[in-house]
Design a protein around this nucleic acid. Structure first.
Lengths: 170, 170
DNA sequence: TATTGACCTCAACTTTAGTTGAGGTTCTAT
DNA sequence: ATAGAACCTCAACTAAAGTTGAGGTCAATA
């Protein structure tokens, strides 16, 4: 097994494979993150990636941010201030995590509001464009995801999509 | 303006453009939904799409489901039982919305748990693979998104990514 | 030293949810 | 009858977050 005990000094730099198994992300993902500027590497004479151990924490932070729903591009922006293999300090973490927590709270609030609307609309089902709180969400624009921008923001042209299900069938 | 008053019978079938403005989705999206089997259309002699008004409710339901985070493919599956232009009944809506609400609740619960972990970890920042609740989430596999399956589920190989930020710098 | 696992780059492919455009047809009001 | 808006199909493109594969190099161990 060529993998174990490669000049086993206590704290060497890590190879990409070591980082992969230790952080739980694929090697290809590490390449990808590097291409996106989320992590950096030094190179050995033979052009192989070498990482300081601090990269493990950086990856941990990236994965947590991702779990909260932050896109990689945004994570990159926030992390880019913390250049290169600079150790992430407690203050960095505090700053980032507080920010992401606020973000997460917002997302939770939105989903909760939606859930509550859903609850009150289950028994109704009118889905009226004019009257149903499930339609015409106030945050329609802010909730947009990939490529989901309003094309023909028809606004007032939108009519009552359907009368109440229990009422006049459409 | 050729668009207004085209043989303005009270409840004709709708053209794709009419459906677009009335439902607030782009014509191209309607084509796309049709290709994906989410909606159907009849055709005029000249091969143009014609929709029963009930399609408006169907689209409303699709958009609500999307807001809760259900992928289109899943929406399609659930909607496919409700064939063609069959009117969505109150019972259908009740069934679907209850299901989606449960789904939404689950997502909210997950995010809330994450938020709470984040809260308790902001002051700590250890991010220890062994000890930090933010690492090794129990639902790691269930939370997977596009292509995010565990490649080398390294389990016990994963080591302590980093000691506590406040403690020994890595 | 030779083998072999680990590594390298670069390009192409995947999925989701659509959008954009080219080239051509239909509809309907004038 | 005709202009022009609206419609048609099909292919290609976008974005995010990666994965996969081909073809070639490095490095550590037997």
């Amino acid at each position: 097994m060529p993998e174990k005990n490669r000049t086993d000094l206590p704290r060497r730099e890590l190879t990409v494979g070591e980082v992969a198994t230790r952080s739980g992300v694929a090697v290809s993902t590490l390449h990808f993150y590097e291409a996106k500027g989320l992590i950096q590497s030094m190179r050995s004479r033979g052009n192989q990636r070498r990482y300081p151990r601090s990269v493990l924490r950086r990856i941990a932070v990236i994965k947590i941010a991702q779990r909260t729903g932050i896109p990689l591009a945004d994570i990159q922006k926030e992390l880019s201030a913390l250049t290169n293999d600079r150790q992430l300090l407690a203050s960095d973490w505090e700053h980032l995590s507080a920010h992401w927590k606020a973000d997460l709270n917002e997302r939770i609030a939105k989903l909760t509001a939606l859930r509550d609307q859903l609850t009150s609309c289950i028994g109704c089902g009118c889905l009226s464009m004019r009257d149903c709180p499930l339609r015409n969400p106030y945050d329609e624009l802010s909730e947009k995801g990939t490529g989901a921008y309003l094309i023909e923001h028809a606004g007032e042209e939108q009519d009552e999509a359907a009368a109440c299900i229990k009422g006049s069938p459409d």
